[in-house]
Deep mutational scan, measured.
Amino acid sequence: QVASGNGDRDPLPPGWEIKIDPQTGWPFFVDHNSRTTTWNDPRVPSEGP
């Protein structure tokens, strides 16, 4: 069983990049398509309500 969020081996969607926040050391994700950033890994399906 693979733990949720453990998709580091999967490629990011086109136009996405991983960067590290220098203050926290946490990775965040840059979507160059929409010029936005998020803490949520785009490779992990979001949980519904």
Rank of each mutant, 00 (worst) to 15 (best):
Asp10Pro: 09
Gly5Leu: 15
Ile20Asn: 09
Val44Met: 13
Glu17Lys: 06
Lys19Thr: 09
Ser46Ile: 13
Val44Tyr: 07
Arg43Ile: 04
Ser4Ala: 08
Ile20Asp: 06
Ser34Pro: 01
Ser46His: 06
Asp31Ile: 03
Pro13Phe: 02
Pro42Phe: 02
Gly5Cys: 15
Arg35Trp: 01
Pro49Val: 13
Trp39Arg: 08
Ser4Leu: 12
Phe28Met: 13
Ile20Gly: 06
Ser4Cys: 04
Asn33Phe: 01
Pro22Thr: 14
Glu17Gly: 04
Leu12Gly: 10
Gly48Phe: 07
Val44His: 05
His32Gln: 00
Asn6His: 12
Val2Trp: 04
Pro11Gly: 14
Val30Phe: 05
Thr36Tyr: 07
Pro13Leu: 01
Ser46Pro: 04
Pro11Phe: 12
Pro42Asn: 05
Leu12Glu: 10
Pro14Phe: 06
Pro22Arg: 12
Pro45His: 03
Gly48Cys: 09
Pro22Glu: 08
Pro45Trp: 05
Glu47Ser: 11
Arg9Pro: 08
Trp39Ser: 06
Arg43Glu: 03
Trp26Arg: 14
Ile20Lys: 10
Asn40Phe: 13
Pro27Asn: 14
Ile20Phe: 08
Arg9Ala: 10
Pro11Met: 15
Asn6Ile: 12
Trp16Leu: 04
Pro49Gly: 11
Asp41Asn: 05
Pro14Val: 01
Ser4Gly: 03
Val2Leu: 13
Gly7Leu: 13
Gln23Pro: 04
Arg43Lys: 06
Asn6Lys: 15
His32Gly: 03
Arg9Gln: 07
Arg35Ser: 07
Asp10Met: 14
Pro13Thr: 04
Ser46Trp: 05
Pro22Ile: 06
Ser4Tyr: 10
Asp8Glu: 10
Asp21Glu: 12
Asn6Leu: 13
Asn40Ile: 15
Thr24Cys: 10
Gly5Ala: 15
Lys19Leu: 07
His32Asp: 00
Gln1Phe: 03
Thr36Asn: 00
Ala3Trp: 01
Val44Asp: 10
Pro45Leu: 10
Ile18Lys: 13
Asn33Ala: 07
Pro27Tyr: 14
Gly25Ala: 13
Trp16Met: 02
Val30Ala: 04
Phe29Lys: 00
Ile18Gln: 08
Gly7Asp: 15
Gly7Arg: 15
Trp39Lys: 02
Thr37Trp: 05
His32Tyr: 04
Lys19Met: 08
Thr24Ala: 12
Gly15His: 10
Arg43Asn: 08
Thr24Lys: 13
Asn40His: 09
Trp39Asp: 04
Asp8Thr: 11
Val30Trp: 05
Trp16Cys: 02
Trp39Gly: 01
Glu17Asn: 00
Thr37Glu: 04
Phe29His: 03
Thr37Cys: 08
Arg9Tyr: 08
Asn6Trp: 11
Pro27Asp: 14
Trp39Val: 02
Pro11Lys: 14
Pro13His: 13
Pro14His: 01
Glu17Asp: 05
Gly25Leu: 09
Val2Met: 06
Val44Glu: 04
Asp31His: 04
Leu12Asn: 02
Gly15Phe: 00
Gln1Thr: 13
Asn6Gln: 14
Asn40Thr: 06
Ser34Thr: 13
Gly5Trp: 05
Val30Cys: 08
Glu47His: 07
Gln1Arg: 14
Val44Arg: 10
Asp21Ser: 02
Gly48His: 08
Gly25Thr: 11
Pro13Trp: 02
Thr37Lys: 02
Asp31Leu: 00
Leu12Asp: 01
Thr24Glu: 09
Gly7Thr: 15
Gly7Ala: 14
Gly25Val: 04
Glu17Ile: 00
Gly48Ala: 06
His32Arg: 06
Asp41Lys: 11
Pro45Tyr: 11
Val2Tyr: 13
Thr36Arg: 09
Val2Pro: 01
Phe29Trp: 06
Pro42Gln: 00
Asp21His: 13
Asp21Cys: 07
Gly7Ser: 15
Lys19Phe: 02
Arg9Met: 07
Pro22Tyr: 08
Gly15Met: 03
Asp41Gln: 03
Ile18His: 01
Pro27Leu: 12
Pro11Ser: 14
Thr37Ile: 05
Thr36Trp: 00
Thr37Tyr: 10
Val2Gly: 06
Ser4Val: 09
Val2Asn: 12
Glu47Thr: 10
Gly7Trp: 13
Glu17Phe: 01
Ile20Ser: 09
Thr37Pro: 09
Asp10Trp: 06
Gln23Ser: 08
Ser4Glu: 13
Glu47Cys: 04
Gln1His: 08
Asp31Ser: 00
Ile18Met: 13
Asp10Gln: 01
Gln23Glu: 12
Gly7Cys: 15
Arg43Pro: 03
Phe29Ser: 02
Asp21Val: 06
Gly15Leu: 01
Asn40Ala: 13
Gly48Trp: 02
Pro22Lys: 11
Asp10Ile: 04
Pro14Met: 03
Ser34Tyr: 05
Lys19Glu: 01
Thr37Arg: 02
Pro42Val: 09
Pro49Ser: 10
Asp8Cys: 11
Asp41Phe: 08
Asp10Lys: 06
Pro22Leu: 06
Glu47Trp: 06
Ala3Asn: 14
Asn6Arg: 13
Pro45Ser: 12
Ala3Gly: 06
Asp31Glu: 00
Pro14Cys: 05
Arg9Ser: 11
Asp8Ser: 10
